[in-house]
Every structure is written in structure tokens, then in C-alpha cells.
């Protein structure tokens, strides 16, 4: 039983489909209107059928009012850290503090290379991400005097001007599955953002992977609570009979999400499927019940 005690966040994990751009926007707007906390979009710049995620995210931020937005997760190899830092801070200012930053070290290297990006090994990817996070936070830190100077293996900045400072403390959430990336998450990220379908043993993976993050956090002098645990669940639906995680009646969804919070400390749930009725039902029936159940158990 691990509950890190974070407040709960509910959101959507949407496809930035170019053909169904309208649907993507409608789903985001509906998520906002339904009172969800987060709208997130996948980011695969090399996928021709997808929109540019940053552009879509910005446009959607302008057409929503309360919901937070994030890439899920943004592809670092095609988005240099300084570009990311300034764009994210800008949108955070424009939107009144509604931007969160989901970051990934990169997947699908052929696609990345085809777009002109640099091919890295998994180990290099982790180091590059470490350098990137440092630079991003430096650029946001306008409280420190002088330019930013970092001479990394993957990213070099030479006396770059700081700012803009975001409107709120933008959390950095990392998509991580393997040992080194999990360690990096514990060492410096504000959150861990995996996708359930990619976890080796599904929900059963949490104890071991959480422990790895916790350990890394502690050895870096942080608390495990400094790392929020988020989760994408791609294949979800409401059905009459329970078949799996978020595939069953409302009660079962509530029970499963409550369990994820109280047993595994997962406190942010982002559902896939791009289906409007499912999103509305999630917001109307599942969210309040999970909030209530978790509050009750936490006492």
C-alpha cells in the first residue's frame, strides 16, 4: 500500500488526428466543460496523419477555460529544450497557468531520424533528457541573475537569456518504463507518466516500478512524494460486464481507480479512446465517485 497523498486529477489522452481535427478540439472542449482537470495529446511529429501537437495544444488552450494542457508526452529529440521552455512558459502566461509539461526521451527512432532528428541509444536518451530538464528549469528561473550556460553532451546553451518565467510552477512529467529512465524520474521529475498498456505486467507492475522511483528520489535527497504518479489508460469503455481495467460498468471503474490511488499511489488518470460519450460519462459519473471514495478512505 503506497499512497503519496496527492490530490486527484482526471483527464483525457487524445489523438492529435489531422483528419479529425474537429473531433480532437471538440473532445478537448468537452473535457473542459465537463470539469475534467487535464487534456493531453500524444506527440508523434513524424506521423503524417497527426497535427503538430504543440500547435494543437496552444489552439485548444485558447478555446478552453479551466482545464490544464500537456503533451503526452512531447518528443524531446524533435523539440530542443530551449524551444520547449520558451513555448511552454509563453503558453502558461497566455493561458493563466494551465500548462504542464509531459516529456519523453523519444521512441520510433526511424521516424525521428526521417524528420531530421538525432538517433540516440536508450542510454543516451536518458542523459539527453537529464540535460534538457536542467536547461528548461534554468531558462524558467528568472530569479537567478545572468544568462544560462550549460555545456552538455547533447545540448549546449551559451549565455542564453532567461525567461519568460511561467505563470505557475510547471511540473515536468516523464514517460518512463526502464530502469535508468525510472531512476531519472525519481531523481529530478515532478511526475511519472506511463501508459498502462505498455507496462510489462499492467497494474501488477506498480509495486516494483514505484519502488525504483522512490529509491532514486530518496538517494537524490528528495521525497517519493515529490513525484506524482500519473497513468494513461488507452483502451477504455463502459460495458455491462466487467472485462478488464476500465472496461466494465461505472462501479467497476470507480473501484479500480480508487484502488490505483490507495494501493499504488496513482493519482492522475488520463483516458484514451477519443469517444465523446465516454468522456462525458467519465466526468459525470466516475470522477465524483472516485473523489469521494478516496477522500473517505484517506479520512
Amino acid at each position: 500500500m503506497t499512497d503519496y497523498g496527492h490530490d486527484l486529477l482526471f483527464g483525457t489522452f487524445l489523438t492529435p488526428s489531422a483528419q479529425d481535427a474537429r473531433q480532437a478540439i471538440d473532445l478537448a472542449v468537452a473535457s473542459d466543460r465537463a470539469g475534467l482537470d487535464l487534456v493531453t495529446f500524444q506527440d508523434h511529429p513524424y506521423q503524417p496523419a497527426f497535427l503538430d501537437t504543440w500547435t494543437l495544444l496552444t489552439y485548444v488552450a485558447a478555446r478552453t477555460e479551466r482545464v490544464h494542457l500537456s503533451g503526452n508526452v512531447l518528443s524531446l529529440p524533435l523539440r530542443p529544450p530551449a524551444v520547449l521552455a520558451r513555448a511552454a512558459a509563453s503558453l502558461d502566461l497566455l493561458s493563466g497557468g494551465r500548462v504542464d509539461l509531459g516529456l519523453g526521451a523519444g521512441a520510433f527512432w526511424d521516424g525521428i531520424a526521417a524528420m531530421g532528428g538525432r538517433r540516440l541509444t536508450p542510454a543516451q536518451g536518458v542523459d539527453a533528457l537529464r540535460e534538457a530538464i536542467t536547461i528548461i528549469r534554468d531558462l524558467w528561473d528568472t530569479g537567478t541573475r545572468g544568462g544560462v550556460r550549460r555545456d552538455g553532451t547533447y545540448y549546449q546553451v551559451v549565455g542564453a537569456k532567461r525567461g519568460p518565467a511561467p505563470a505557475h510552477d510547471i511540473p515536468i512529467w516523464v514517460g518512463a518504463y526502464k530502469r535508468r529512465m525510472l531512476a531519472l524520474t525519481g531523481e529530478m521529475a515532478d511526475g511519472w507518466l506511463p501508459t498502462l498498456e505498455y507496462l510489462p505486467d499492467g497494474v501488477g507492475s506498480f509495486p516494483a516500478l514505484n519502488a525504483r522511483i522512490d529509491e532514486a528520489a530518496v538517494s537524490a535527497g528528495r521525497s517519493p512524494r515529490d513525484v506524482r504518479r500519473l497513468l494513461n489508460i488507452m483502451n477504455v469503455r463502459f460495458s455491462a460486464t466487467g472485462r478488464g481495467v476500465l472496461d466494465g460498468p461505472v462501479d467497476q471503474w470507480v473501484e479500480q481507480l480508487t484502488g490505483l490511488a490507495l494501493e499504488h499511489g496513482v493519482t492522475a488518470y488520463l483516458i484514451g479512446g477519443d469517444d465523446l460519450p465516454t468522456v462525458e460519462r467519465f466526468a459525470a459519473e466516475v470522477v465524483p465517485a472516485v473523489r469521494e471514495a478516496v477522500a473517505r478512505e484517506r479520512g
Binding site: 500547435t55 489552439y59 488552450a61 485558447a62 513555448a87 509563453s90 497566455l94
Partner: peptide, 12 residues
């Protein structure tokens, strides 16, 4: 401060 692309898309 603002990133021009982000600002332009926001205004749109």
C-alpha cells in the same frame, strides 16, 4: 518574452 509561434496560435 513570448514565443512568437505560440502567441500567434493563441491569438488565433
Amino acid at each position: 518574452g513570448l514565443d512568437p509561434w505560440t502567441a500567434a496560435v493563441w491569438v488565433a
